[in-house]
Amino acid sequence: MDNLTFYTERLTGFQAAAESQRELLRQNPDDVGAQFFAEAYEVYVSDAKHECNLAQAEQLQELFEVRLFGEEVSDGTIRLDTLAKLAGPLSATFKHAAHRLHFGKVARHKVDKSISALLDLRLGALAYGSTKLYITGNVHPDLTGQSLLQQTLLQIFKLLTVKSEDFYDAVDAVGLKSARKLDEMLATMQAHGMAAEWHWDSPGNKYSWDGSTDEILRVKSLLETITEPESYVENLTGEISGIHDVGRLELRTNEGKVKIRFALQQTSMVLDLHLHQAVNLKVETNRYFDSLSKSYVFKHFLLERM
């Protein structure tokens, strides 16, 4: 029996018992015992509905889990001030990444309100056992036919687990602001002596990040090397050599193979592309300086087809 079936049957049982208690109270309005049990079963029904919602969110891949470890959270609780310091940057990490993935550009100031509405991030529950934060969101496809939340989660997990050779690709996918907000959240965890585990069951795959103190230090060390890239617009001409996961295509040019990302709202722009097709693409190029290798790294984002 899966979790959703279990909690649904549990809810049905509580609802039937609650109705029986309400009927008993109607027949005996002055019965203190009947009133007590009627109120108690209303609470049971409310709690069971919440459990059903979480189970349904998990089944629909609408839920991911952040489990925190450390002295401050060892008893299954967390200070509200600490939770706020974690939740703010975490939410901003998702919103800025989603803005980048949806529109193809970094939000200059505030993230577009439509992005917050599409993600619909919520704290579904705070569970006991170390401290588990169950966060839900909206996985339904948008007008592009893709789930913005799922694509955002995918790219953030890639950033958390990335190796140094693919680091700038992961950063450019979510945008510099998202990466810096993630760094801010990890800094808060370090300051409070915390470690973390992230889990998400996506359609067809399971993702996890073991955020030990050493792993947090590794990711932060990479994030802190980022400097503002030099951005400019250029035209790239060549043949399509690959269209891989959602949001990326490859172009074979005279200088070699070039990887180009495109925004979810640009999906219709690339639907008719096929292998070996000659194209002329206007792209935004971000030139990052990799302080570890002392070299420049170039990343491209599609603007339009010429």
Rank of each mutant, 00 (worst) to 15 (best):
L217N: 14
R305C: 10
S291Y: 07
T161L: 06
L133P: 01
L222T: 04
G145D: 00
S114T: 13
L123T: 04
N138D: 05
L149R: 08
G70N: 02
L154H: 11
A98G: 00
L54K: 04
P29Q: 00
A117F: 09
E65I: 13
H50N: 13
K282P: 02
T5M: 09
E65A: 08
L11D: 07
L148A: 01
G70D: 00
S130E: 09
G145F: 01
V246H: 07
F298N: 11
F69L: 13
K177R: 14
Y232G: 12
H140G: 06
I226C: 00
E184C: 08
F14N: 06
F64H: 08
S91N: 13
L159T: 06
G137Q: 02
F64W: 15
V32R: 13
S91F: 13
K113F: 11
L186Y: 00
D142T: 02
I115V: 05
T227Y: 08
K282C: 06
T5D: 13
L86W: 00
D81F: 03
T152C: 03
L249M: 04
D142C: 03
S20F: 10
V270T: 01
I240D: 01
K49M: 14
F157L: 02
L63F: 03
R218A: 05
A173E: 10
D172Q: 09
I216F: 00
S202I: 03
S91H: 13
H96M: 07
T267E: 13
G88T: 15
F94Q: 05
T152H: 04
L24T: 07
L236V: 11
I240W: 00
H300L: 05
F94L: 09
L251Q: 03
M185V: 05
K132L: 09
P229M: 03
L123Y: 05
K299D: 03
L154T: 09
D142A: 03
K206A: 14
K132A: 10
E239S: 11
L153E: 10
G76E: 03
